[in-house]
């Protein structure tokens, strides 16, 4: 358990961020429920926030992003809220018009 004795570095944060990102990507690719895809997007954005905060943290690098990283993370959070509201409105509209939430059935525009 020697890894518990060493301070963690930026790489660990990047690894967790990458894991969340990939989980989100796989989630977006495999779910058929429109809201499941939305949940995948949230995970992807979360990985991005984690990266920004990791790069901004003075604990890991001397030349960190500093406040810029924090502010960009805040903007990501706010935009995620906006995105969720619009995506939810679209999903609910889709559900109302087609009586399903399965994105594979959203094929009206298919040629």
């Amino acid at each position: 358990m020697s890894f518990l004795y060493e301070p963690i570095g930026l790489s660990h944060y990047l690894a967790v961020g990458a894991f969340l990102f990939v989980c989100g990507i796989v989630c977006m690719a495999t779910k058929r429920n429109a809201l499941g895809i939305l949940i995948g997007i949230e995970l992807v954005l979360n990985g991005a926030i984690l990266n920004f905060i990791g790069f901004a943290s003075p604990y890991f690098r001397d030349e960190n992003l500093g406040l810029d990283g924090h502010l960009i993370a805040l903007f990501v959070i706010v935009l995620a809220a906006a995105e969720a509201a619009v995506a939810l409105a679209i999903a609910l509209n889709f559900y109302n018009n087609h009586a399903t939430i399965d994105v594979d059935r959203a094929s009206e525009l298919k040629g």
Binding site: P7, G9, A15, F21, V22, I25, V26
Partner: peptide, 28 residues
């Protein structure tokens, strides 16, 4: 398909994350 793409992406990202030795630990 999803797991293949995801696994490939994750392995690349993980390698990138641990690429730079200064980032692997912190002397703060």
């Amino acid at each position: 398909l999803g797991l293949l793409v995801g696994g490939a992406l994750f392995s690349i990202l993980l390698q990138l994350a641990f690429l730079i030795p200064q980032w692997q630990s912190s002397d703060y």
